[in-house]
Design a protein around this nucleic acid. Structure first.
Lengths: 219, 219
DNA sequence: CGATGACTTGAACGCCATCAATCGCTGTGG
DNA sequence: CCACAGCGATTGATGGCGTTCAAGTCATCG
């Protein structure tokens, strides 16, 4: 709600195209709504206008791994193949801008800079999941939660702390932990270490008091 | 040694360029040699001709996460930015084909199909690490080892089983486990389940007797 | 208010890590 | 030719971190 939109210049190129009303439209997704499912045809790509989206994979018994959270300004659902590789769901009431994949492909055919832009965005995703792989494979629970807080603090910066759109369970499924472990780590950072502060009645409005403390824990 | 080279048609386009002796050269790396380091300038991209390479990230205290193994035919070291995001080392005595990144960039400027090829390869990497994220975040040790065996069985298929080029420690650092846990899982699949067989005196020549059994364990 | 859902906190368990011993193979030097 | 060091791998014993199970708190909403 108080989160600044992403104004990364790398996305501007694509947004120039995306901004063209002839090829895009907006749509509203209530909290919990599915945007697309894993292995469904990838007919559109999406940009978050307002709200937040999670992308996840499921195992057959219900275990879930969230690969990324998409915040205002972020583009997601960009596939090179014809099918989505994640399921995407709105975390909160969300507005998305949609662009037909077909029209992107058409532009890409004649515009090398557009293909470049796609490549750059794909590489950015790659870099994010590569770092996340290190977190999931080798970091302790405290390190994971500290890294999460720093990531969100960077991406959601706003006056008076960040407003996390996701539940403890979502955080846990992003970090490869249980929601109880996430909760314990947050309590520890708040009470024992004094790195955090919760604002208001909810437990999702968080102020990071000592980023350096978190950064130290995150190795 | 008995592993068939990768002949994926998607790589052919790039290999057409890579095959040009004017822009490439070969180099030998003895077992253990560093190909490039994390955060070093990315001046070349590489293709495995013979041998095998591992790509990893390190935490400050030495914990290691291997992101991928590169086998004959595979291309790696392709970055969009100017710096490598992994350290790459030869697992066995290895021959690599090198291509100057600059000459790739030059071709890419005028050849949209080349940019496309780069995008496709980047997307393939992305898909691999996305699946690996699910493994690292949510799978049990048995599931991880089963998935590893199936992956290597697919990529190293040869008459009379596969010859793993990597040590138990490498496997462990790829799967986010310890080498002891990997060893126990392999023993279990061999003795208790009868899914595996070791050939010869070494413990790296493995025959998968029942892929279906491994697939079932891997969820 | 009572119901519900998100979160926190406590207690006990279990999977995997850690520590440690041993085995088998290879290579090396006396 | 044998002793032995060294390395990779296996196997056993123990321990700890995060999970699981469970109870309780708090805010929201009918």
């Amino acid at each position: 709600m108080f989160n600044k939109p992403n104004t990364d210049p790398k996305k501007s190129r694509l947004l120039g195209e995306l901004g063209d009303p002839k090829v895009n439209s907006k749509a509203a997704y209530p909290k919990g709504a599915k945007v697309f499912g894993e292995a469904e045809p990838a007919d559109y790509i999406y940009q978050v206008v307002e709200g937040a989206v999670r992308s996840h994979k499921l195992l057959s018994d219900g275990r879930r791994q969230i690969g990324a959270f998409h915040l205002p300004g972020d583009i997601f659902g960009l596939e090179n193949g014809d099918f989505h590789r994640f399921t995407a769901e709105a975390i909160a009431d969300t507005t998305l801008r949609l662009v037909k994949r077909q029209s992107l492909e058409r532009v890409a055919k004649t515009d090398p800079a557009m293909v470049r832009a796609l490549l750059t965005m794909t590489t950015d995703s790659l870099q994010h999941v590569e770092n996340h792989m290190l977190l999931l494979g080798r970091k302790t629970s405290r390190e994971r939660v500290a890294a999460f807080l720093l990531e969100m603090n960077r991406r959601l910066t706003a006056p008076g702390g960040m407003a996390l759109p996701m539940s403890r369970r979502d955080i846990a499924d992003y970090l490869g932990l249980t929601l109880e472990t996430v909760s314990r780590a947050l309590s520890e950072f708040k009470r024992r270490k004094g790195y955090l502060m919760f604002l208001g009645s909810t437990q999702r409005q968080i102020v990071v008091l000592k980023p350096a403390g978190l950064a130290e824990i995150d190795s």
